[in-house]
């Protein structure tokens, strides 16, 4: 019933989604040093932005991705400027920043629920399905994987070759030194919050296109996204790539195991949870450190 090739493809699809969704989280976490739980809502927001374009079968998917990127990025950058930056500047403790992010998440999530409704919806766009041997792959998955790979390559060059990219790494490495070296930290941090959440918004569109669209969409996958971020080593983009691959594999092979044991695949979240706890115990700083 389960084809190993199919499981591998499913794993790469899962990994690609986690990579897109986790990139912004790991980069902003590396700079701002607190876990932003409102991050889930940037994913959901992107998914709802997609609905404007994809409610009809002839929607332009590419346009949905761009608008989701811009809107999620804008809301994230605004939330940084209006909520988190003032708190950070007053040297608010980590725990207070976390609570603030949970609170902001509630506000965003419920606003989206009130605006777009709480029941599940679906994009109306159709995808071609290809069968290669026993392996089934959709056009959506191909675009998702390509987007994730392109993003990873582009980000690699951005972080190692450009002035802004090196500045991001410098701030993550040593914030105070970055300041006295002449880097305007606030500017770089704001840029990162924008681009990171933009990618999360893009991930939201892919997630909604692959499953359904509802206000809990982002919140439901926040746990595995935090798991890959921590597994990869917070702030480490390369660790994130490996972690996303590992968790994608673990989840999809785990699902097979679950059904083999006669358990519901709803337990798949437990896999991310187990991996998260295991990593926190064995390698609290993640794979990359």
């Amino acid at each position: 019933m389960f084809d190993i090739g199919q499981i591998l493809v499913n794993s790469v699809v899962t990994s690609s989604l986690y990579l897109l969704a986790g990139t912004g989280l790991t980069l902003t976490y590396g700079l701002s040093r607190f876990p932003n739980f409102a991050y889930a809502e940037f994913i959901t927001l992107g998914a709802f932005c997609g609905l404007f374009f994809l409610a009809k079968p002839d929607g332009v998917f590419f346009l949905a991705l761009i608008v989701a990127f811009l809107v999620a990025g804008f809301v994230s950058a605004s939330s940084y400027t209006l909520v988190f930056r003032p708190l950070v500047e007053r040297k608010t403790s980590l725990i207070h920043l976390m609570v603030a992010s949970i609170a902001l998440g509630y506000v965003l999530r419920h606003s989206m629920g009130e605006s777009w409704g709480w029941s599940a919806q679906a994009y109306q766009i159709m995808w071609p399905v290809y069968n290669i041997g026993n392996v089934r792959i959709t056009g959506l998955w191909i675009i998702l994987i390509a987007t994730a790979v392109l993003t990873a390559v582009a980000l690699h060059f951005f972080l190692t070759r450009t002035r802004a990219g090196k500045a991001i790494r410098a701030i993550a490495s040593n914030p105070d030194l970055a300041s006295v070296t002449g880097i305007n930290r606030q500017k770089v941090v704001l840029l990162t919050w924008f681009f990171g959440a933009g990618l999360a918004g893009v991930a939201g569109v892919f997630r909604a296109a692959d499953t359904r669209l509802f206000p809990m969409l982002g919140w439901d996958i926040l746990l595995p996204i935090f798991a890959v971020t921590i597994l990869g080593g917070i702030g480490s983009f390369y660790g994130l790539i490996i972690a996303a691959l590992l968790l994608g594999l673990a989840e999809n092979f785990g699902v097979v195991l679950l059904s083999g044991l006669g358990l519901s695949t709803e337990y798949r979240m437990a896999i991310a949870f187990l991996i998260l706890i295991g990593v926190l115990i064995i390698r609290p700083k993640g794979l990359a450190r």
Partner: peptide, 8 residues
């Protein structure tokens, strides 16, 4: 202390 960017 911490006067270089160790990751760079």
């Amino acid at each position: 202390v911490n006067n270089v960017f160790t990751n760079l």
